[in-house]
Amino acid sequence: MAGKSALSDVVQKNGREILSAWVQRQQTDLALRNNLLQPGELQQQASDFLTAFGPAIERGGTDSTTGEAWSPVRDLLSTISRSRARQGFTPAETATFVFSLKRILFDALQREVKDSTQLADEMWKASVVLDDLGLYTTETYQKGREEIINRQQQELMELSTPVVQLWAGVLALPLIGTLDSARTQVVMESLLQSIVDTGSSIAIIDITGVPVVDTLVAQHLLKTVAAARLMGADCIISGIRPQIAQTIVHLGVEISDVMTKATLADAFAVALTRVGLAIVRKG
């Protein structure tokens, strides 16, 4: 339903006044949180928004804000809410960016539109559009937060999986804590990458610190051993506690072609022999 509406006229004609009233209003609303923003950032965002807002109403109408005409406005809001999510604003504070424009627009409409039926109509339109955009802001804010959480989870997983070099050509991966499928996968990928980076032909996966091994985790371990073998490296699994040995057998996981050792020390001795080294007592 594109077409001239008083709303877009009002926004485009009174841009300057609306902008300054709106920015002032937000500064009051955000009061103590102002230090989270760069100086001039709010002014810039508000001005960008108004620049895109007027033409969007004119071209896209106010029935829906999902159309192509509204996409510059949505993109802008999406950028703003994501950056607010990072800067530490609450969802309510972020949505205020849009909602605080309502009062200002109403005031401007009241000044410009004299006919009371038309005024009510235009105010309703303004209200609907801003509600829509406000909800959109909250939604993208939420997405932004979820992305941050995802990234942190990923980083945490990588931090919790140190691959260490025991000797030239010998790597060890001491696994500690409960292994879920996602973590096992990350761990195993980083082990295989370390094998390539260090040119190590043997890697020890030590599961002394792993309380439970279920079928899925056992399967991941075996797949890693198989992948390492395809790359030209061997793996030894060490630190298999009696309960885990029992579990593996009961689960029917086939590990007969994987080298297993009771302790990390045993595995290390085997690994050294493999790379052609021996430990001897001095003197």
């Binding site: 295989l192 190590s200 790359m231």
Partner: peptide
């Protein structure tokens, strides 16, 4: 063989039996 390729081959079910491999 790249790690990502090796992981994928294992998932695909290809063991490359009889092929010897080395890191570099």
């Amino acid at each position: 063989m790249q790690p990502s390729v090796a992981i994928t081959l294992v998932e695909l079910g290809l063991a490359l039996t009889g092929v010897r491999s080395a890191l570099n």
